[in-house]
Design a binder for these strands. Structure first.
Length: 582
RNA sequence: GCACCGGUAGCUCAGCUGGAUAGAGCAUCAGACUACGAAUCUGAGGGUCGGAGGUUCGAAUCCUUCCCGGUGCACCA
């Protein structure tokens, strides 16, 4: 049970009954009423702002309304104390048993702890990574990939039906560059000595593509005109690059359900159809855009183009759908793509992009609004840059041809779990520092280690408990423990924090902010480590008390539950919990 | 010039979509191991929440306007 949500319902019920008695006007908007943990635990277990929020519309003094509401809430069975504080907060103190009851629930749920039905099965589309299929993934892609994947996990956790999607930009000019680069490697495979000119991709990763082309086609391609060989080489190269990318993603544990091809949109006529749709809405015209104000580009000249009236939807300028030569811009098929998502039934769309695309947000939001008549929500999450360090020194990124740090370089050095966790220790729109040495440090200021250590310590206790002769450590047996024996402030603090897990997960999901899970886990680990050390000062608080089986069982239940919550949280982040630190 | 994102303790950052006396880690200082792993914990000091206005019962959070840093600014993808 989510205690916070339960009490939100109780507050609503109390308000309704006040309304029925005529003490409140009927039909008040209660959407701003919240039940939260108070910032200062000494104020109680729960706090509601209901009286302050509703005082004005009800035409009442906040404290007077609080008095009435407090009287109702006092009657709730699990409420032991009601206090009115400050400008009209109502603080509730609950019977500790209602918090303790969370432990057997967690033990039953296991790593399913924290799940909820908030999303009610609603379909959500999360598009992330979508790196151009022109080479292996590099370090700049990692954050967005991890973020998108964790966000998808998070939404699933609270009951959304999530589609993980990758948009393949397989139609632009960079694909021709890829094809020409691969063709060179093909000629190399045939025995020619090649030099790779400026502007083509020099990376070694295209060598196998050249070999594959040779194996399949022999020398035949070399006899053809570019117009003939290019489509062949292109298709082979794209397939090979997507294979490469899928492999890279798999080392981070990422799998997309849908890979959506931009070229398919062109082929199917979806782009024309979308343009027609916009035309029918009167949102298309031919015009000339103003010169950009930034650094002057020499080759700018005024040209009439097919434009979309995105300014009608809040964009800064109208946007080109066709280039001056009449071919589509990148934007045109992207509109068709988002419309396609809508037509596949998604009303909530989430795009995860790198910081360098932030200037593109408004036009896509405008396009989605236009093309769906405002019926779809689109949230664009931009991941800021990751700054790389080693021992505090900025990492020198060579700009030389083909020389970059890949996703695999990172994962090979620090591992999947550390990479994923670290990428989620900042909110997405703040830059992130990633120090190869620091993330491997075993100390409190490394959150991955700190959280994993808490989990490992719990398992260490459980191993010791077995040796100390606790016969049945099953979840069922622990769930039956007499939890009223958990009375210490530190124990209850841990219990209450776990009781807020579901709420934290839901809040993180609604905000589309997986980093909050990482911070929650750090807090939980801190509460656990604190309890552990308290047992050093006061031996009576140790988890395993040889002469008191009941207390031992209760405490093992507590920490077993804590381990499940940590594991559940880590699962959202896509990190495997450690049972031992090595 | 415009847009977007940041600006919170000496440093790195949270701050639960407007709540109460703004919180963590690092660093500094003072403490806790004959150990369920001290790889940890307890405590102390440290703040004009970039500046100035505004909105209201109440602002780090919303609005306006400046300042600083980052990112991006026709047809690229």
């Amino acid at each position: 049970m989510n205690i916070f949500r339960h009490f939100e319902e109780r507050v609503e019920a109390a308000l309704a009954s006040l309304a029925a008695e005529g003490a409140l006007p009927a039909g008040l908007d209660t959407s701003r009423v919240a039940v939260e943990p108070p910032r200062d635990p000494s104020h109680g277990d729960l706090s509601t702002n209901a009286a302050m929020v509703l005082a004005k519309p009800a035409g009442l003094n906040p404290r007077a309304l609080a008095e009435k509401l407090a009287a109702k809430l006092k009657a709730e069975p699990s409420v032991t104390e009601v206090a009115i504080a400050g400008p009209g907060f109502i603080n509730l103190r609950l019977n500790d048993d209602i918090w303790r009851a969370g432990i057997p629930e967690i033990l039953r749920a296991g790593v399913g702890a924290g799940s909820s039905d908030l999303g009610a099965g609603e379909a959500v589309n999360v598009e992330y990574v979508s790196a151009n299929p022109t080479g292996p993934m590099h370090v700049g892609h990692v954050r967005g990939a991890v973020f998108g994947d964790a966000l998808a996990n998070l939404l699933e956790k609270v009951g959304y039906r999530v589609c993980r999607e990758y948009y393949i930009n397989d139609a632009g000019g960079q694909i021709e560059v890829l094809a020409r680069s691969a063709f060179l490697r093909y000629r190399e495979a045939l025995g020619e000595t090649i030099t790779i000119p400026e502007g083509l991709y020099p990376g070694d990763y295209l060598k196998p593509v050249g070999q594959a082309l040779k194996a399949e086609h022999g020398p035949a391609l070399a006899q053809m005109d570019e117009a003939q060989w290019l489509p062949i080489v292109r298709d082979t190269a794209i397939d090979a690059m997507m294979e490469l990318i899928r492999g890279d993603l798999s080392v981070l544990g990422i799998t997309h359900e849908v890979f959506y091809s931009e070229r398919a949109l062109h082929k199917s006529g979806a782009v024309e159809k979308t343009l027609k749709l916009l035309e029918d809405k009167g949102l298309i015209y031919t015009g000339v855009l103003e010169a950009p104000k930034g650094e002057q580009s020499d080759d700018w000249e005024a040209r009439p183009q097919t434009l979309f009236r995105s300014t009608q939807f809040g964009d800064d300028t109208d946007r080109a759908l066709k280039k001056s030569d009449g071919s589509w811009t990148y934007f045109a098929p992207d509109i068709a793509y988002h419309l396609d998502k809508y037509n596949r039934g998604y009303r909530t769309l989430i795009d995860v992009w790198g910081a360098d695309h932030s200037g593109y947000i408004k036009r896509v939001k405008a396009a989605v609004a236009a093309v769906t008549d405002g019926k779809a929500e689109i949230d664009v999450k931009v991941c800021q840059l990751v700054r790389l360090f080693r021992n505090g020194e900025p990492f020198k990124m060579s700009k030389r041809a083909g020389d970059f740090i890949t996703l695999r370089d990172v994962v090979d050095e620090v591992g999947k779990g550390v990479t994923r966790f670290m990428m989620l220790t900042r909110k997405n729109d703040a830059p992130l520092d990633f120090d190869f040495a620091k993330v491997m440090e075993q100390s409190r200021d490394n959150p991955v280690f700190y959280v994993q250590y808490a989990h490992a310590r719990i398992h260490s206790v459980l191993r010791n408990a077995k040796e100390a002769g606790v016969a049945d450590l099953s979840d069922g047996a622990l769930a039956g423990a007499d939890l009223s024996l958990l009375k210490d402030e530190a124990e209850l603090g841990l219990i209450k924090l776990m009781g807020a897990f579901t709420r934290s997960v839901e809040q993180a999901a609604l905000a589309h902010e997986p980093h909050r899970i990482a911070f929650y886990l750090y807090d939980l680990a801190s509460a656990f480590h604190g309890l552990w050390n308290k047992g050093k000062d006061e031996p009576g608080l140790r988890f395993i008390i040889a002469e008191d089986r009941n207390v031992t069982l209760a405490r093992l239940a507590l920490i077993r539950a804590a381990a499940y919550v940590i594991a559940a949280g880590l699962e959202i982040l896509g990190v495997e919990p450690a049972e031992e630190m090595r």
